[in-house]
Design a protein around this nucleic acid. Sequence first.
DNA 1: ATTATATCGTTATAAAAATAACGATACAAA
DNA 2: TTTGTATCGTTATTTTTATAACGATATAAT
Lengths: 232, 232
Amino acid sequence: MKGKIDSKNSKKSVTLEIEQSRRAGLSCVKRLPAYLQLLRILQAEGNEYVSGTVLASVHHLEPVIVRKDLAITGIIGTPRIGFRVNELIAAIERFLGWDIQTKAILVGAGNLGTALLGYRGFENFGLQIVAAFDRDPRKVGRWLKGRRVQPLEQLVKFARRNRITLGVLTVPGDVAQEAANLMARAGIRGIWNFTPTKLDVPADIVTQKEDLAEGLAVLSHRLHYLSRTKGL
Amino acid sequence: MKGKIDSKNSKKSVTLEIEQSRRAGLSCVKRLPAYLQLLRILQAEGNEYVSGTVLASVHHLEPVIVRKDLAITGIIGTPRIGFRVNELIAAIERFLGWDIQTKAILVGAGNLGTALLGYRGFENFGLQIVAAFDRDPRKVGRWLKGRRVQPLEQLVKFARRNRITLGVLTVPGDVAQEAANLMARAGIRGIWNFTPTKLDVPADIVTQKEDLAEGLAVLSHRLHYLSRTKGL
DNA sequence: ATTATATCGTTATAAAAATAACGATACAAA
DNA sequence: TTTGTATCGTTATTTTTATAACGATATAAT
Ligand SMILES: NC(=O)c1ccc[n+]([C@@H]2O[C@H](COP(=O)([O-])OP(=O)(O)OC[C@H]3O[C@@H](n4cnc5c(N)ncnc54)[C@H](O)[C@@H]3O)[C@@H](O)[C@H]2O)c1
Ligand SMILES: NC(=O)c1ccc[n+]([C@@H]2O[C@H](COP(=O)([O-])OP(=O)(O)OC[C@H]3O[C@@H](n4cnc5c(N)ncnc54)[C@H](O)[C@@H]3O)[C@@H](O)[C@H]2O)c1
């Protein structure tokens, strides 16, 4: 069932093969954090086991989806009982690489950047924002949520010296590309992009665009639909 | 002018409208805002036309995907030329219901809530956050990004009086459900949920969960994979 | 006028994801 | 012991989404 790729279609592009070779569907990976969040609560409540059925019902999913999702982490459950909560948390964290803290820098200490710097939840996702950079001289030097805002000129040196692999991008959209270029020069491997700008980066750099408008579009469309069909 | 395909066309448009109000592909709806963002830039630069091919190349998509996505908005392009930028913007906005500004309230004026209140981009998405509510007495009464923070007790009255249909939820996860209940009592129709808590709401309320961890999981997984296969 | 070509819109096919189906297993109760 | 059942993990099947294929059309070039 798994097997090697038949090299039938060479057009199929490297990206797909990469994702397939790990056998992790994108939608599956996206659901894992939600399970993790719930598992942490169950753990705190002292539960030793949890069934896929319970995880499914909370998130309004079919149990079989949950079981399949969890399967890619390598976890094995016991029939009639479920999964060990501790083991499951460890398996998901390990699969996502969240068992080891990754150091990140943030570029653009504005509204959103400040909020992200102040978010305590990232440590649960293996993320540690260790420094913030900004171009605005009025912000440089100030302390923000426990980090001192540094000038852009320091970025490359800092990132290289501290072996930073991940960058969080929260600058205005029209300067996003140049900030990304700077990150690339600094040896950053992954960019978490909160700007509405699609970035152009070397092939060995991974970008993830976080677009709030996507979710709002879905919400708006659903509401719009409801109001048209139910006449509300 | 188009007499020869008239009968076929009318039949098709009926089908399309049904499908439009019924279920537009989720992935399609999610891509529309990205097109819109680029279109606004093109419009500001004075471009009159844009081809699906151009939109596709910027976002690293296949042209046919773009054309199909745009088709659900009802827009019609001209071969060899493309689409009128103005018309396309209007069509997407109309499809998403973003041509009319929707009034929203925000509950939880903390780190993230403040950032969202300060975001000027929402007016491009037909969203207008007109009020903020918080439980913390130290925050109530203060001005935040041009809005006065109001106590929770005012929420129901305010929302009903101002016919608010949309709520933005940025409270801590463990009180998210009760805040959502309050919104439901206030007649809110849609909840944009930024907490990691899966909400339980009446069937006639639409919720959209915005989970940053999803995107981070994808990014982490890609990086993790890269580091294991390319040994970097 | 003819040809070339970039693009459109639709239809056909392939790939991914969700859902259904089903046998296997661990424990509880009769 | 036997039966009942909630769950697991795997293997179909269906649905959704992405990609490929193709004829049609508007404009520019020959
Ligand atoms: N605030 C939100 O809620 C929100 C929501 C969705 C998307 N976004 C996006 O996030 C980004 C930031 O939004 P914001 O509201 O925080 O904007 P902001 O203006 O508050 O912050 C931007 C910060 O980037 C700094 N900056 C500007 N140019 C820079 C450069 N070249 N290098 C480094 N820093 C630079 C500015 O000094 C400022 O501090 C924008 O692209 C925006 O579209 C924000
Ligand atoms: N800050 C981020 O970058 C970030 C990122 C991802 C997710 N989130 C999520 O967003 C939510 C808010 O995060 P935050 O960092 O802004 O937290 P925060 O603590 O800074 O803000 C929470 C605010 O909600 C208020 N509040 C508490 N209980 C309330 C209630 N019952 N009704 C109304 N208001 C109430 C608090 O007084 C506070 O002002 C959390 O659920 C968090 O997990 C935040």
